[in-house]
């Protein structure tokens, strides 16, 4: 049984992030950067190479507040794995409780697929796409802060703001016409 965002009760002052990405993509480096940030609540980071999560231990697993898909634009495998994993995630997460992090998005010459495929993936799941890099310290920190901002909203630490409220400010796409 796949986990959903409301199947478990939240713990007091705890937020849990699940990082999903193929092996070697830098999940643990990102997790380290996330944990280094000072938070007023206790932050847990879990990692997985793919979804769905195994059935064993599912009872002891805490509620997942936010899911981050990590993918590398230069790596075809990571893209296809992300596509497969995203299908397994419960739909309630795509109401602002999940996001895609694209690594190496700017070095276009090395991409193994067109960028529009990746943006298409994010749009199909109606989730924000963040671009960044895990290579150097500052970039990692910058990315971690952004993820934390979203996690705070989705785990309810921001008073009177829900992920849906933020999603509601999105003006729907009608076309993707270039200039």
């Amino acid at each position: 049984m796949a986990f959903t965002s409301h199947s478990k009760l939240p713990e007091l002052n705890t937020a849990t992030i699940l990082l999903v990405g193929m092996q070697g993509i830098g999940k643990h480096r990102l997790a380290g950067a996330l944990l280094e940030l000072n938070t007023s609540y206790s932050l847990q980071v879990r990692t997985a190479t793919h979804l769905p999560l195994p059935a064993e231990n599912s009872e002891s697993r805490p509620r997942i507040d936010f899911v981050v898909f990590l993918l590398d634009a230069n790596n075809n495998m990571s893209i296809s794995k992300t596509v497969a994993s995203a299908k397994e995630l419960d739909v309630s997460y795509f109401l602002g409780r999940a996001c895609f992090v694209v690594l190496n998005a700017t070095s276009e010459s090395l991409h193994c697929t067109d960028m529009s495929n990746i943006t298409g993936l994010c749009d199909a799941h109606d989730s924000p796409m963040l671009c960044g890099s895990l290579q150097d310290e500052n970039q990692r920190k910058c990315l971690a802060r952004k993820l934390l901002c979203q996690t705070e909203v989705s785990s309810g630490f921001k008073h009177a703001v829900s992920p849906m409220l933020i999603q509601a400010t999105k003006h729907t796409y009608e076309f993707m016409e270039p200039l």
Partner: peptide, 20 residues
Amino acid sequence: FQKLNDLLLEPLRSLFFCSS
């Protein structure tokens, strides 16, 4: 506006809500 939104405002917005 629709064009402006798709090309300019939407990328800015998604950064806007997850930044300081």
